[in-house]
Amino acid sequence: MTAASGRAFDGAAPSRSLSNYGVVGFRVELLRLIVAMAILGLIVAFYLGDTFTLNILATTFLFAGLATAWNIIGGLGGQFSLGHSVFFAIGAYVTAGFYMRLGVSPWFALAPAAVLAAIVSALVSFPVFRLRGPFFAIATMALTEVVLSLALYFESVTGGARGISVPFRRGFANMIFTDRLSYALLMMGFLAITLLVLAYIARSRLGYELRAIRDNDRTAEAAGINVVRTKLIGMAISAALMAIGGGLYMMYVRVADPPTLLSLFDIGVKVALITLIGGIGTIYGPLLGALLVVPLESMLRATLGGVFPGSNLVVLGIILILTALYLRKGIAGAAEGIYTRIRKGRRT
């Protein structure tokens, strides 16, 4: 029977546990993720009464989540998008629009926001995916500028240059709170979801296919991977999560104009930089990057911002250069290297 099949091997392969193969499965990753979230929970608990720090933590978790979302297509898939602020802005506008015009709770508005961002991302990516390396990045940058002009033009949706302001009506259903702890927890929840999605993808066939495409798309294709379709799926998931982050951001700051939401540097480039610094393509790299970059930036802005405007950018640039020089695989890569060295040392 097998002999007649004309295939290399049809027989069912014996199943062993994944760890025997040196492959990490989702279940193991889930345990690590729970530990990581527990540590973050302890940090929040430590600063319970400290409004200033809770604010920084909320922003840190938001950007950690955004960078984690970016990492799905940017890190695993190797598609270096600098245009993710577009999906962030879509999330913000859809959430604000549903809430202010239709009275829909932001909690529910996040779903259509995510869906719309996923659709838009697939439509714009389709032609752009033909471009490789720097050309792809430049095209996504250009996309940001185009969408920014559109956002300024369509005042009825975006409020034009004045932007949108969401009136302060506190309440859980409105996702508007007086205390900062609620926002810190909200953003932590968002981070947890993005990490869960990234971990699930990274430890499944889709993640392997994305990594194969990143490493060598010719090989991926010859192995039967539909390269365009796989990249589109990765992009759509990444964009959907980005939009959820945008919706949460909108309800957090309650005032936002197009240049803020579609900021090339403060959103599009920053999520990529945070990921690079933390460890591109790794699961916890974006979180580690955000934990380093966001608090540092906030403090610089608070202390030096008035004196030397833009000093936060200089510092971010210096961190990036140092990472590029000394930690090629980011903080997560360096941590992993140390861990393996310790384990090897123990064995011998």
Partner: peptide, 11 residues
Amino acid sequence: LAAAAARAQHA
């Protein structure tokens, strides 16, 4: 993943 790993190991 586990089935793919087993098949890959066989190859």
